[in-house]
Amino acid sequence: MMFSFCADPKSLEGLQWLSCYLTTGTHMSFYGSFLTVLVLLAVTAPVALAFGFGGAVAGRSHVAPLRWIGKTYMAMVRGIPDIVFFLFFIVALDQGLEYLFHFVRCEDLSQPVRQAGEFRACPAAKIPPGSAPPAIHQIYNFALAVFTFAIVFGAFAANVLSGAMQAVPRAQLETAESFGMTPRQINRRILIPQMWVYALPGLSNLWMVLIKATPLLFILGIEDVVYWAQQLGAMKTQTFSYPHPDWRLWYFLGLLVFYLLLTKVSEVVLDRIMTRLRRGLPMAENGATA
């Protein structure tokens, strides 16, 4: 309770009612969930970039199986809608981990893990353990979501980075070769440093895409902004302290504004970075078509 006059909500009116309404525990959770979105973005972006880098390098590898893995990973996002992947992957990941742990930690391995439609890993194999405090469960679920996001957006990033690697002028690489550099040296000293400039337009676009994908957290079961907007906006009867009609439209318009602001700010910042990086660089096509 933020204000003392909020003790008896049903007697309030007008602005007082609104100020009490907007400071309830549920609303505080709602405001907190905006932070969840920002944390997700901050954590996912570098992890996805790392996955993308791995994918792009693997896709160029001279070792055939590695190359196939890289190429398949990059092709995946072009074929499968991300939401399908989300729905499927997060369960697969959770169960897969517990399946592995089942064989490491459980004593009785006579029974199959999957039987009669149930997934029966022994208690010791549960992640997190059933007795763990709620906060641990929360963090684990959030980590699963971050990992899932990173896999999908890593595949996007791999596409961008591998395009950027191809965009580095061949002459640069050939010159390095004529200086007697090994392929490894060429990669580390010439290709990768130059690649970033070419990758930047694609990566900043990817950042925007990532922002716009965050409402999918809701589908992964995280109590994010969409969850709270649904929960708070729904019609409330007299069972609740602050009864009100269906206000979902207003809550969702609020979310719309939040996302528009977030993308706008990102756009301005990324534009600045891009102009700075481009200064003095011979980017003939100025970031290709767009």
């Binding site: 922002i211 716009k212 969409v226 979310l255 719309l256 996302y259 528009l260 706008k264």
Partner: peptide, 19 residues
């Protein structure tokens, strides 16, 4: 262009239906 490119499609569906 700003409104439709700057916000998630997911939210656009919600808002559109409610409107």
């Amino acid at each position: 262009v700003f409104i439709f490119r700057g916000s998630p499609l997911f939210i656009q569906f919600f808002v559109a239906y409610q409107l």
